[in-house]
Design a protein around this nucleic acid. Structure first.
Lengths: 249, 249
DNA sequence: GCAAAAGTGTTCGTTTTACACCCATGT
DNA sequence: ACATGGGTGTAAAACGAACACTTTTGC
């Protein structure tokens, strides 16, 4: 059994080294069946379609959304949803907030809880996803027409991501496991939407002691190869207890 | 018609000049009828009671909560709820987040959206409230046994309030319209849970240009009377556009 | 005149900003 | 050898932390 009036919507953010992207999809009945929990009946799916005509509009794009099963925790269900969408675990997931305008979905009342996920697109072969054919990455600054209030959910998600990235090292979830300082800086320039001074940025980061030098370098680049670093989660947790305040702005 | 599986829970914070308080109440059937929207039938109230036995437990205290009417915006409904609880408008209200553990309410599935409201207790004669007899302010550090996951909602609300107070001047909503710098400092000491240096605090505040000197002073105090200030909302909005960053930590 | 809280400046160390050149690598 | 991005230090300014005494008021 699912709750007819409560859904979860996931904004999946990715960083390709240059710009911040959102993963969107277009939906059809077959895809919907794979996206929703297996216990859902044909009749329930039909009802969803009757209530969400926008879902079938081929000019509109969607976030990953599904109605919440009556017996599943909200957070756990949001994780499931991301897994079904892109076929992987270990995704960093945060709740954005609840969206509850009475008419956000026409014809029926659905309150949705927004989440955002951070992934590194290079890690994920989207062709393996069950709904691969309709998946596409969009630049956050150039979104296509979106279903329902999905544009608003993305806007709020982005606002929250920016905020969190400034005060907690969540940015690492958008990078490959091993990354260069330039990649790291570019990510923050994109998130904060402003240029940062390279020397000052590097000084700040290195004083934080949050990176492990892997002693590896980039390969096959047509310029001096950059050192590769890893995020030092263990040390971050240690320092956080002692009151470290991470801040990049 | 109300949604059986979606409710709103409001944490009402107040500051009495010394410590941060939460307004809680104990509930009975008569009170519940006044708290819920008028369209709700007797039969629906009975169902609520069947599903929420904790609500009638006289040893437990509650946040202000109600199920969401099918045709009302979530934010607007949360405001209504606060008004019904304490009988006033112009309350600062923020969403905390959605709480969706499958078993947060026993016997039935209810996802709740938490909000926090900031009020100044001196302004509000709680005796005028419809549910006055069961209302009580509790220190946030000395909460009584609470219904459901209300302790968790308060904890998260407090966390969010602290966070917002550090980076946005929301603290003003907890003070009287005219307040002294000492009151303002005490508020932030309570919110941040640490002592602040008076001279440095005053320097910082005055550099922000967010206070209007009312040219009034305290009266009938057994010591030098302090100047009274007002928050300069107009200037705050102007400065925010130019990129002021309010920060107290 | 005394108790109680209001109000005020300076010094010192830290952090932030601004800024320009040499280095390593692939072609 | 050249194009491309990687990597580094220093000086000046702004900011934050620490700290003690005088003023005003009611009793």
């Amino acid at each position: 059994m699912i709750l007819d009036d409560v859904s979860v919507d996931c904004v999946i953010f990715g960083f390709d080294g240059t710009s911040l992207k959102v993963l969107l999809h277009q939906i059809n009945r077959k895809v919907l069946q794979q996206t929703l929990p297996s216990e859902i009946t044909e009749e329930q799916i039909s009802r969803l379609y009757d209530h969400h005509p926008g879902m079938l509009d081929e000019t509109l794009w969607n976030l990953f959304a599904a109605h919440v099963p009556v017996d599943q925790d909200l957070d756990a269900f949001a994780l499931d949803l991301v897994r079904r969408a892109i076929g992987l675990k270990n995704v960093y997931l945060q709740q954005i907030e609840a969206f509850g305008a009475a008419k956000r979905v026409p014809y029926t009342r659905v309150i949705t809880v927004g989440y955002y996920a951070l992934i590194n697109p290079a890690y994920h072969d989207l062709r393996k996803s069950a709904i691969a054919k309709t998946l596409q990455w969009f630049n956050v600054t150039e979104l296509p027409p979106l279903c329902f209030d999905h544009a608003e959910i993305i806007r709020k998600g982005l606002e929250k991501l920016r905020w969190e990235a400034m005060y907690q090292p969540v940015g690492f979830h958008l990078l490959p496991e091993k990354f260069t300082l330039t990649e790291f800086q570019t990510l923050y320039e994109v998130l904060l939407n402003k240029k940062l001074d390279t020397r000052n940025f590097r000084k700040k980061i290195s004083k934080m002691n949050l990176l492990i030098d892997t002693n590896e370098k980039q390969k096959n680049v047509a310029h001096r190869a950059a050192k590769l670093y890893q995020f030092d989660m263990a040390n971050y947790n240690r320092l956080k207890k002692e009151g470290l305040n991470f801040r990049i702005e």
